[in-house]
Structures are given as structure tokens and as C-alpha cells.
Design a protein around this nucleic acid. Sequence first.
DNA 1: CTACAAGTTCAAGTTAACTTGAAGTCAAGC
DNA 2: GCTTGACTTCAAGTTAACTTGAACTTGTAG
Lengths: 144, 144
Amino acid sequence: MESMLTITDVSRRSGVASSALRFYEERGLIASERAGSGHRRYPRSVLRRIAFIVFAQRIGLTLEEIGAELAKLPADRVPSRRDWSRLSGRWTKRIDQRIAELQRLRSGLTECIGCGCLSIDRCSLANPADMAGRKGPGPRYWLG
Amino acid sequence: MESMLTITDVSRRSGVASSALRFYEERGLIASERAGSGHRRYPRSVLRRIAFIVFAQRIGLTLEEIGAELAKLPADRVPSRRDWSRLSGRWTKRIDQRIAELQRLRSGLTECIGCGCLSIDRCSLANPADMAGRKGPGPRYWLG
DNA sequence: CTACAAGTTCAAGTTAACTTGAAGTCAAGC
DNA sequence: GCTTGACTTCAAGTTAACTTGAACTTGTAG
């Protein structure tokens, strides 16, 4: 059975633009075979891989990190449910850390800014030591 | 008393690089007076303003949004504690939304990827409708 | 057979939030 | 008088994750 998908098929089913799919391929996150014409053909299993990529992005991983995770999947066969859940298991901790950070910020909102200390020097929430200027150039994201 | 601060003073006390301080000024987030030499001089109150900016960034606001918030402060006097807490009050909701999103993702991690459905089409967490391709060009951040 | 849609590559553009570099000014110490 | 250091402006570079455009080739419907 000829069940390979075109790039438009994959784009429509995954919600990810074709340009992004080519970009992911360039970065080694997904792979494709080629039809005689040179057009990309994808196996159905790529959809799960893409879902995983999107999911991981929402959690906050960079494409580079996602690539590193995907590299741990078996190369010789279509990954099983166990394979996938082994990967995602590590993220739980990461999510928990982000949640904790946000909760810390949330309480700081009322306790620190709303409080009377008003001292940037003494306030642990707006403290040089734990925030700015760490990532070098480029945008600094919401979490150091 | 001559208690104005130089840009290096402010940078050291806030942990924000001087280049960033100039950038914030260009964007209208902070202001400075000038010494006869043309060098910037800041009142002490700028430190609280900068703390607020950094805090807001960690919560996930863009500089543009932060600018809009800061514009709501009184222009004719140094903002009071009430002024500040009025601003930050609105953020609580926002933080809660992010926390909820992360918790949703966290449970999806075990329930969806770890589960047997394995169908990208049926999985509400990796669903085209609520995720990709919304922000136009540029990076897509961890939250739609 | 001819449109026209869909696919290809490759280079360059986009956004946010800054940083870096070049070229010049100004004040203080020796 | 001169060097050093802090400061200035302005233009261009950086990073991530893509998108857009140009220039071409292929596949398909009529």
C-alpha cells in the first residue's frame, strides 16, 4: 500500500507549515524520502514525531534540545509507546520547576511589590544575582 | 543633596547592563536627565522602575506591554506603593493562566503521550487548532 | 498541449531584546 | 600636556525559529 504523505498532507494534518517542516528536516528533527520527482514523501509515523516536537516546544524546550531528545529514539524501527514515554518522563521535573518559579513570582507580586520594603537592594525577587545578564546576547526569555 | 546616579551606578545596583538601560530609554521605559557634559543622570526612583521591568519580564510580558503598563503611572510625581500594586494586580490572573497551561501540559505528558491513543488527530494536546502558526513570523514562544 | 497548482533550493528577511563596535567627547590624575 | 576611563551616539550584529521571495521544475486537470 502506497501510504506515504506529501508535505502538504503532513502540514495539514499537523498544523505545522511546510516551510517549518523543511526547516525541521534541515535541522535533523525529521526525515523524508524522495519521490522520483525529488518531492518529499513522509511515512505516517512522522506525524507523531511532529506532535512530539510541538508539544516539547510548548513546554519550553528549544529545537536543539528537542533534537537531542529525539536522537535517543531507536533509529532502526518506528518508536513504540514505551520509547516515547521514556523521553517525556524527564520533562515532568522541568515543568514542575517552571510552575514553582511562576508561583514564586506570583507571591512576590503581592508580597514584594505590594509590600513596604520598597528596596530593590533587599528584595530577593528583583535581585541582580538571580536574574539578568546571563544568557549573553539575544533576547532573555521569561526564565533564566 | 546631589543624589543623582550615573549610568554605571544604576547598572551596578540593578544588575541591568548600561546598554540595556540606554535601550530602555530609547523605548521610553525609563528616562534620564543630563549633566552639563551630556552624561545621563538618574534619580533614585528609577531603580524601582527597573526592578518592575525586570520582574514583569520574568512573568512573561514583552517590553511593549511593560511600557504600556508603566504609562499608567502618574507622570507628575514619584509613584507610590499603591500605584505600583495597582499595576501588578492585573498580572496575577496572567500568571495563573500560565500555571494552568503548564499543568495541562504536565498531565498531558503522562495521559496523552504515555497513553494508548497515539493519534495526533484525536489528541487535544497536539491539536492544530490550539497551537501552531498563529504568531506570524518570528519565534513562537512556549505559549500561544 | 497548455495552464496552473504544488514542489524544490537557496538566500535573505522578521521579531524581540539586547550587545558590540566604531568614532568621538569630557574630566581627572600624573 | 597627555593618557586613561567613563560616557556619548549611531549603525550593525546576535539568536531562535521560522517565513518570504526568487527562480525553477513537476504533476495534473481540462
